[in-house]
């Protein structure tokens, strides 16, 4: 039996203004993570154009994509991907080393509410705390764009809200654009823009003139 190619994304056309909080919503397999990976330079598209902060990602070499990720993107993942042998602060400092002008790691951790926990190892932190370390790690190098893939997917409601507040603050107060992938319908209320995806295509794009505070969310 031969292998058949299944396109993860088709006919996607989207423009996102800088500094917005954008939520990509859709069921599993709808292509939202693939789109996020393309924007983050983790995957490359077989055809089409992707431009982020004035750069075209299509023709970039692997080395150039690495530089792009280093300079432009901050990642937050569902399963945190912390280095378990480094403390919270060291995890942040690890990424800070990549930036020519990073934020102070301690201050960033304080900003995400982990001032007291910065010398703890990931194993000693709760899931929410680990995710906030992951956000601090993304923030420390002052990325133009934070890409968060299901950042609350493995968290309980209260912890998730806390994480979302940190992400919203990163957008509103620090000026980072945030692209958040989720299948949680409630989260769309806090977004500036909502991109609904289905079967590898954009079903609709909605703008939200009055984004909600995460604490007002319910699920």
């Amino acid at each position: 039996m031969g292998r058949s190619e299944v396109p993860a994304l088709r006919d996607v056309c989207l423009e996102i203004p800088a500094g917005e909080f954008v939520v990509f919503l859709g069921p599993s397999g709808s292509g939202k993570t693939t789109l996020l990976n393309l924007i983050g330079g983790l995957d490359t598209a077989s055809s089409g154009q992707i431009r982020v902060a004035g750069r075209s990602l299509v023709d970039l070499t692997e080395a150039a994509l690495t530089t792009y990720r280093r300079e432009v993107i901050g990642f937050v993942f569902q399963f945190f991907n912390l280095v378990p042998t480094l403390t919270a602060r060291e995890n942040v400092e690890l990424v800070a080393e990549l930036s020519p002008a990073p934020r102070d790691s301690g201050e960033v951790l304080a900003a995400v509410g982990l001032d007291e926990r910065q010398h703890h190892f990931p194993g000693a932190l709760s899931g929410g705390e680990q995710q906030r370390v992951a956000i601090a790690r993304a923030l420390v190098k002052r990325p133009a764009l934070i890409l968060a893939d299901e950042p609350t997917g493995s968290l309980d409601f209260e912890t998730a809200v806390r994480v979302l507040k940190v992400l919203q603050a990163a957008c509103r107060e620090m000026g980072h654009g945030v692209l958040l992938v989720t299948h949680n319908q409630e989260i769309v209320h806090m977004a500036d823009r909502v991109v609904r995806m289905h079967s590898g295509q954009i079903a609709e794009v909605l703008t939200n003139d009055a984004p909600a505070d995460p604490e007002a969310l319910q699920w």
Binding site: T66, R69, R70, G74, F75, N81, L98
Partner: peptide, 14 residues
């Protein structure tokens, strides 16, 4: 693998 993936995603070179 997850850590390697994160490091690479963050901009650490091969």
């Amino acid at each position: 693998r997850g850590q390697i993936g994160f490091l690479r995603a963050s901009g650490f070179r091969p």
